[in-house]
């Protein structure tokens, strides 16, 4: 294998390993969640999945909670659905901890509003996780920024659950910018790979050092070794030399 190819493979391996290490791990935190306090709850009689609203930060009015619960009920066909709000300082990955505190690893989704930091979090588990992927979460999150900036928490949650419903029922969330970007990336990759393929295919293969081209015979006896002398080089700390 040529040195250049070996170096290239090492670099690709290096970047791939780096990428794997860059993926986030699950957190370890012990912040307790008060499981007793629940504002609204609905249990689906067919599959015992729940729709639950836990509004610790008091972001929603009673009316809004009732309306939101009605919108969450259809989502129980697919799994548990939880709305959670908090105004306490939360560490990273708190959303995961909240959901697992209520439902463990059961299929479902959580929508959380952190009023302290004015940010939203979405977490899914089980089958829902395969549908509401990282990019979908990112996309939905971005679409909620206007609601959050206006502190329209009901509108924010309603919009989020509406997106969940579209995705879980098999619908498509249009992401025109993403598709356009994918087109550009695909074209660039295609042009680049085609050009590299062209370079490889068009190379006139010459190797004048190929033994097969010549009439080569070689016999070699045992190698004997004779010492001829000694030399020295500076050590790792040359400034310590005594002169």
């Amino acid at each position: 294998m040529s040195k250049k190819l070996l170096l290239f493979l090492i670099m690709i391996a290096f970047l791939s390993v780096s990428f794997v290490f860059a993926l986030e791990d699950n957190p370890h935190n012990e912040t307790p969640v008060n499981l007793e306090e629940e504002d609204m709850l609905y249990k689906n009689s067919n599959n015992s999945y729940e729709a639950r609203i836990v509004d610790h930060a008091n972001l929603l009015t009673q009316n809004e909670k009732e309306k939101l619960l009605k919108e969450m009920i259809p989502l129980t066909d697919y799994g548990n659905i939880l709305f959670f709000s908090t105004d306490a300082t939360t560490e990273e990955y708190y959303a995961i901890h909240v959901y697992q505190s209520f439902y463990g690893t059961s299929t479902g989704s959580l929508f959380m509003i952190d009023a302290e930091h004015n940010k939203t979090s979405i977490f899914s588990e089980g089958k829902n996780k395969q549908i509401i992927t990282n990019y979908k979460v990112y996309s939905i999150d971005k679409s909620l920024s206007s609601y959050m900036s206006q502190k329209n928490y009901y509108g924010c949650a309603s919009h989020a659950f509406s997106k969940f419903n579209t995705l879980l029922s098999g619908g498509i969330v249009l992401e025109p910018l993403r598709y356009a970007s994918s087109v550009f990336i695909a074209l660039t990759l295609s042009f680049l790979l085609s050009f590299l393929f062209l370079l490889f295919k068009y190379k006139n293969k010459t190797n004048i050092n190929q033994e097969e081209l010549y009439d080569f015979h070689h016999t070699q006896g045992k190698v004997t070794v004779n010492k001829t002398g000694t030399r020295h080089d500076d050590g790792p700390y040359p400034y310590n030399h005594r002169y």
């Binding site: 045992k222 004997t224 010492k227 001829t228 002398g229 000694t230 080089d233 050590g235 790792p236």
Partner: peptide
């Protein structure tokens, strides 16, 4: 603080 190397001639028929 010097590294010493022995030098050799390698003979082969």
């Amino acid at each position: 603080d010097f590294i010493y190397y022995d030098q050799y001639d390698l003979h082969s028929e």
